[in-house]
Amino acid sequence: MLEINRLRAGYGEAEILKGISLTVKPGEIHGIMGPNGHGKSTMSKILIGHPAYAVTGGGVTFNGKNLLEMPPEKRALEGMFLAYQYPVEIPGVNNAEFLRMAYNEKRKHEKLEPVDPLDFDELLNAKMKFLGMDSRFKERAVNEGFSGGEKKKNEILQMALLEPKVAILDEIDSGLDIDALKVVAEGVNKLAGPGNSLMIITHYPRILQYIKPHHVHVLIRGKIVRSGGMDLAEELETTGYDSYLKEK
C-alpha cells in the first residue's frame, strides 16, 4: 500500500532523512520509534507534503501512484492521514463545519453526493459517541482552546470520519493521561482493520502496549537502524535508545 524507497529529505540546508526504506501493507500496524530530533516527525511531514520540507532523493509509492507528485490535499483524498502531534488551531471556523467540509471533499473524490448538515450531524454524533466525546466539540472553533487531550481526540474523530487507508499517528500519546490514552487507543483499535494501515510514531513504547504493532522500527539519525516485532518495543522499554546513539 505504501512503499518508501531510500527516501532522503530535509528542511532548508539540513538533510534529516538519510535514506529510509519501509513497506506498509494493508492491515499492518507499524511502530516508528526513536528519540526526538532524529527524523520521525520529518518523515510524517514529507508523507503529507509539507511545503517547507524538500525531498532530496528516493521515492514514495502510495497505492501504486507516485505520492511525492501529489499536492497535499490529493494525498489526503487518496487516503493518507496524519493525526498531528500538535493539531493546528483555526479560530473562527466551526469544528462541525470543518469536519463536514472534509467529509464532503472525500465524498466528492469518491464521486458521491455531498451530505447535508442534518445527515452529517447524525453521523458525527455516532462517531463522537464511539470515541466518548462531548457534543460541545461541535460548537467550538477547530482546536481552538482545546486541551491537549481534546485535540488528540479531535484528530482521532477526523480519522474515524475520513477512514484513511494509511493513518500516521504522530506522538498521539503525548499530553494524554492514562484514561484519555486508553480511550484514544481503543478508538484507534476499532478503526484498524484489514483494509487500512497504521503508522504509530512514538518516542515512548507505552502507547504500543495499547495499540499492538506488527512491526517496530528504530529511527536514528535519519535512518532505520533496526526493525523487529513487538519484542523490540519491549526491549527498548528497558534499554532505551542509548546503545543506538553511541554507535556510529
Partner: peptide, 23 residues
C-alpha cells in the same frame, strides 16, 4: 493552518475562504 485543511482533503482556496469567512 492551510496545510491542516489540505491534509483533510480541502484545497488551499477553500481553506482561505473558510478562514476568512470565519474572521
Amino acid at each position: 493552518q492551510l496545510l491542516y485543511f489540505q491534509q483533510r482533503g480541502i484545497g488551499k482556496e477553500e481553506a482561505i475562504r473558510t478562514i476568512l469567512n470565519g474572521f
